[in-house]
Design a protein around this nucleic acid. Structure first.
Lengths: 347, 347
DNA sequence: GGTGTTTTGAGGTACGCAACTCATTTTGAG
DNA sequence: CTCAAAATGAGTTGCGTACCTCAAAACACC
């Protein structure tokens, strides 16, 4: 009736006794210190394995005695999503200080590769871990690899640099996000056929390009009745997005769906309402902000694809901590899900 | 450019010095031990406040030196969702043993109030915390309150007993879940009008009743073209669900939507395909299991409302641990979201 | 001023591990 | 067999807190 999952109460001393060696030797094996015969290493590891021994994290943390410092390298400028991540980091301050973790944010122009790379370069001394919203660029990749070589733990946040040697990526699969947006637009449009518009920041941004790719994939294969118009590049600016979309709406009376890939949401909404076609055009966008929340409640926006900023903030900290401690990462826990948010499941 | 969130490195000794008292007195204040003059208490608390001092959790945990034991009281019987929660608990074993936490599952008939209450009664000695999938019944409520009185920390899991004095509920808002299901069915059906069927386990189950309530709310207020048929009670059994639904499909040719509130999913799917109306009827259900995953991929099921079992397992453990340690709970982190899962964002 | 009570200080021990030193034993090469 | 190198044992210290004891000081009351 009762099934026990864990009953460990062993200490290093027990392992030493079982392996027939001293505490010092166990310590050497556990921390890969030199000076132990291969055969002895094996015996110790077997004893650890046999008892599925885990060092007590609290004791280890206390003995190590070093406060850890993490840096979060974030875009300067008023990006609401990034601001939310920082807000959630602030909410963790009690949790952090109880663990003697220092977290600092470094604002920088992440869109300029050389500036970003320069910001990263200085960080390896002084920080045990770095989370960075990274642009995928050779210079940035080199800077990340340098940090890793210098012994720092590095995770990319929101936007990945897969070719680098970063230890982990905390963020969503943007192709899947685009596919999800496509499926939503297609199914919410229903039987009707017509045209679908896409407004993006820029196709040069990796995450935007991937989302568009996924979106087109689904539209092409599953919704033959819908034809996708060329992508409008609004640079994530309201004014420009509004202008471009207004013109497009004027030219095409049969637009039934709209995918807003990045920011500039207010501009997109304005264009729709100026044309008197809000609530008629199925409108799917990204992220839950004060604005998208209002648009969802009003029925102007039909769904938002969202990555939970609180989860991303906490996952980044937890992953950096686990990496620094040499603990395993709970991949399932740290995986960022693609949330579909509609009016009734607004968080 | 760099903003620091935390820089604590103070210890109790520093607080003692600042307050002009000894370590022993600080300790007395911190743990509400008697024998300290009110004025002195104030001075110490001020020093703690002034430095926003937090005891080092690792040190506290080590000094306390007690291994903690938690019990998970789960339904016996082959419920795939509950099984997933237990699987995820198993995946945490490393994490748990590194913190000297023992987690045991207790299988019981949670649908029989007296049996459940009896199972709970014995648990207060031996366990520091209890997570329970609870039926909302006076006897169960009393048992929970007894546990709380005996000093144990109690969280309800998946299904709540709001009238009890449980410390926390880990699960979703089922009314909102039902509303979400309603919005999905309504919007995915599109322009068409017709009838909508509901298959539930039983309307006597609190979570099912709440979901139906939310569903009906949305249907009534937003989709006047759709009329909801009386609820079929399939008792979460495949055979019964199939039989009831088959009969209903036979009688109503104009069913365009279907909401499956609980389990019995295979039966529901069979009824649809036997009638040759799968993929035509918009089918929304709950939870991501091997079966619903397949049905989503096949296009038979259009969307699943899901509560992440891994998240629930981990949140329950974390909440119990925080409660036992007297740490604050990160509410945002422990809140279970209502996930909308479609084919393209399948986790 | 003496009594009894309350409050405070001082100090110790323990928790489990990391990190280190130094002495001793074992091993392998010549 | 000898000797240096390698491997191992034994031990210490410290991390920051919890929890405990005992003595000293401060206080209240008559």
């Amino acid at each position: 009736m009762a099934e026990t999952l864990t009953t460990t109460a062993l200490t290093l001393k027990d392992i030493a006794r079982q392996a027939g060696v001293s505490l010092a030797t166990v310590d050497r094996v556990l921390h890969n210190r030199p000076g132990v015969r291969p055969d002895t290493v094996r015996r110790v590891k077997e004893a650890i394995e046999r008892n599925s021994f885990q060092p007590h994290v609290a004791a280890a943390e206390l003995a190590r005695g070093r406060a850890r410092r993490f840096a979060f390298v974030m875009p300067s400028g008023p990006n609401p999503f990034m601001q939310q991540i920082q807000d959630y980091l602030g909410e963790m301050s009690g949790w952090l200080s109880a663990r003697r973790l220092g977290v600092e944010t470094v604002a920088t122009d992440v869109f300029d590769p050389s500036v970003l790379a320069a910001s990263l370069e200085g960080l390896s001394d002084g920080y045990d871990g770095i989370a960075v919203v990274a642009l995928d660029h050779p210079g940035v990749r080199a800077a990340i690899d340098d940090l890793v070589d210098a012994g720092a733990k590095v995770v990319t946040l929101v936007s990945d640099v897969p070719s680098s040697r970063r230890h982990h990526y905390v963020g969503i699969d943007n192709i899947a996000a685009g596919r999800t947006a496509g499926a939503l637009v297609g199914r919410l449009v229903g039987q009707k056929s017509g045209k679908v518009a896409i407004v993006a920041g820029s196709q040069g941004l990796r995450d935007h390009a991937e989302r568009i790719f996924g979106f087109n994939q689904v539209m092409a294969s599953e919704f033959p009745g819908l034809s996708v118009l060329p992508v409008l590049e609004g640079r994530d600016e309201d004014a420009r997005s509004e202008q471009l979309l207004s013109r497009l709406l004027g030219r095409h009376a049969d637009i039934v769906g709209l995918y807003n890939v990045g920011a500039g949401t207010q501009g997109v909404a304005n264009a729709l309402s100026d044309a008197g076609r809000d609530k008629q055009v199925v409108f799917v966008g990204h992220d839950v902000t004060a604005l998208t929340r209002r648009l969802l409640l009003q029925g102007v926006m039909h769904a938002a694809i969202s990555q939970n900023p609180g989860h991303e903030a906490r996952a980044a900290v937890r992953v950096l901590l686990a990496l620094a401690r040499g603990e395993p990462i709970l991949r399932e826990q740290e995986k960022i899900r693609i949330d579909i948010v509609m009016r009734d499941n607004l968080p």
